[in-house]
Design a binder for these strands. Structure first.
Lengths: 232, 232
DNA sequence: TATCGTAGAATTGTGGAACAATCTAACACC
DNA sequence: GGTGTTAGATTGTTCCACAATTCTACGATA
């Protein structure tokens, strides 16, 4: 079951990585959304965007469906899709799901004594980071670290669900540009998390991660409130 | 945050329940799949099915996309969609995700002391069940019970993720027709779960639910093995 | 002035035909 | 046996059409 990373079944079907137009369009749109190119609430008119992307309207619709499933877009019947506008409740909700997935993943990793090389690599790169490291780099490493733990469980479904969560968190980031601690501090925090994970005391790890996630959630919520005060 | 069920925001937009052709088609397909009308592994040819359903090929594709997201269908590029064939690993994986979601939901419910009227109603109906109750009735009550706990957390995202899990579990059921205890036993087990939940000892509840889920998982896995022995 | 109603434009939802790219199966060939 | 080759089926994508719905602007009415 968890042998997926060890030895490959030689008879397993190998499928080349091709990209359908739909996938490519979804990628392009995702990029625009997470770049901040598109304002929250923007309506994505079908004729407009399909023309801009040089694809058929049907194809565009299929692409939006993907992003709707990721939570980045929302559709209202007969009114098309628009970029999700995050509210306070959304952030809390996202982090509830994230906590459910991540805490369970940690338990499994600790219980099974699984190695998490991806997380170790992330921490190493964190350590090598200068204070001038770009915001985006820090965010990416942060994401990598947590994703590595999830993937270490070897559960496709948990990974898929978590991918959705991460994508929504990136949306938060893109929309809110929250305050982020200095790279060194973020690095230290993740080093601590990794060490606890390796030490293997379940309760301590869990408590540490819950606090970490709680802080992140609060951080984003604050950023949201700050924005609301500006626009109000 | 958790006031969603208490008082409604009077200004909240009310949207009538209309059904798009895509949704209706997805429902019809889901029905066929969970009925067992369609064999596992069946390929759903676009021209064929769109004609049968009396819809356009595009519309059919959109409908399949919904079921793909639910895990009931799978798509391979240029080879169309086919009914998911469950393997042993899938069942384990489904239950890993289920456990992650459900255990966290339980913790939240216990910690907050939330009432779970839906679960209470389910248990009452369980109690009223005769031994001749249909298999389907028991399964539905079982689903309702667990779903009620999830919904009690008030988290849309956890609920959505759990809906996917339940849909996959129904697929297991449809494909495997596993052994199911007599209604009275199932009822007793859920009564026990509910009582523990109401008593509010977090560790005990968690242990009980983990065992319950573990048993269910094992039950399905056994059914799968039994099937494999037949076909082998 | 504010509300209402309505015609017209814009947009979405769905259907249908077309065609290139890809897959599948059958068959001939070595 | 293995290997090309070819024809047919199927998918992925585009383009066009049109009904249903929503949006917008503007004039009528209280």
């Amino acid at each position: 079951m968890s042998a997926s990373s060890e030895s490959e079944d030689p008879d397993r079907e190998i499928r080349l990585r091709t990209v359908s137009v739909v996938d490519a369009a979804a990628d392009a749109l995702r990029e625009m959304i997470l770049d901040g190119t598109l304002e929250p609430g923007t309506r994505l008119r079908e004729t407009d965007f399909s023309k801009r992307l040089g694809i058929a309207r049907h194809t565009f619709r299929a692409a939006t469906q993907i992003l709707i499933n990721e939570g980045l877009l929302r559709r209202s019947p007969n009114r098309g899709v628009q970029l999700t506008i995050l509210e306070g409740g959304d952030i809390v909700d996202i982090f509830r799901l994230r906590e459910a997935l991540e805490i369970e993943a940690i338990r499994q990793v600790v219980a099974a004594g699984t190695e998490v090389p991806g997380a170790e690599r992330a921490v190493e790169r964190f350590n090598a980071l200068g204070d001038a490291a770009s915001w985006r780099t820090v965010v990416d490493l942060d994401m990598d670290f947590h994703r590595a733990i999830i993937d270490a469980t070897g559960s496709d479904r948990i990974s898929r669900a978590y991918a959705g969560v991460q994508s929504e968190i990136l949306l938060c980031m893109a929309q809110l540009r929250p305050h982020y601690d200095r790279p060194a501090e973020v690095a230290a925090e993740h080093r601590e998390l990794l060490e606890a994970l390796q030490a293997g005391d379940p309760d301590k790890v869990e408590k540490l991660f819950r606090r970490h996630l709680g802080d992140a959630s609060k951080n984003l919520t604050n950023a949201l409130q700050a924005r609301e005060e500006v626009t109000a």
